[in-house]
């Protein structure tokens, strides 16, 4: 399109020329170690805030902090877990403080969120969207979203993000035993609900028939 603005180019070059080799190295390392997890962080943020703008703010704030404290990241440990921990702390500081009480479920918010993401996904392949638009998906997804936050959180971190119990314990500031029992209890609630839907829609997870 237009020729690149020479002034802008100069500024860009200057910024980069002024970087010391160590700073430049830090930048490259940060891209490789931390920025690669942007999608995972965004998805997690989206599911805890249920709002795309809040999610984007939260992720941006997280990266700003992560970059500032990147020197304190212990090399060789799980960078994704480190970023999730920062995001979690940011979330508590930015959103939770003066909004809803912890553990309280806002069903209207969940319904709105589900329908807004459903709309953005309408461009997917036919099989995908058939499934996505089925009642089963809606109800199961909402069942998951409706779990009290302390249960939903650990299920998401474990099942979706694949973190170990130790990593999750560190993120949610609780002992491993607590993580373990929250997963156990959360899944129990969820399964009871899944079985309810399975019966309603004639869908069964039983194999022995």
């Amino acid at each position: 399109m237009d020729n690149p603005d020479p002034a802008h180019q100069r500024k860009y070059l200057q910024t980069h020329e002024s970087l010391s080799p160590a700073e430049h190295q830090k930048q490259i390392e940060f891209q490789n170690e931390a920025v690669v997890h942007l999608n995972a962080l965004y998805n997690y943020a989206l599911h805890i805030t249920m709002n795309p703008d809040d999610a984007a703010d939260l992720v941006q704030e997280t990266y700003l902090k992560a970059y500032r404290f990147f020197n304190s990241f212990e090399r060789g440990t799980n960078c994704k877990a480190w970023l999730f921990k920062i995001l979690k702390n940011n979330y508590i500081n930015l959103f939770r403080k003066n909004s809803k009480e912890p553990g309280k479920v806002d069903y209207d918010l969940i319904k709105d969120f589900y329908h807004s993401i459903k709309d953005t996904r309408s461009d997917t392949t036919e099989t995908d969207s058939d499934y996505f638009h089925s009642m089963l998906h809606e109800e199961v997804y909402q069942a998951l979203l409706s779990l009290p936050e302390e249960f939903r959180e650990v299920i998401q971190l474990c099942d979706i993000e694949g973190f170990t119990y130790e990593e999750i314990a560190n993120m949610v500031d609780s002992p491993i035993g607590t993580v373990r029992s929250r997963l156990f209890r959360g899944r129990k609630i969820l399964r009871a609900q899944l079985e309810g839907y399975a019966r309603t829609y004639g869908f069964t997870t039983d194999t022995d028939q």
């Binding site: 998805n43 795309p52 997804y141 099942d159 997870t205």
Partner: peptide, 12 residues
């Protein structure tokens, strides 16, 4: 089922 049901988005 939980793994499959969670929708993954691309960051804007």
């Amino acid at each position: 089922i939980i793994r499959e049901i969670i929708v993954r988005f691309n960051a804007p």
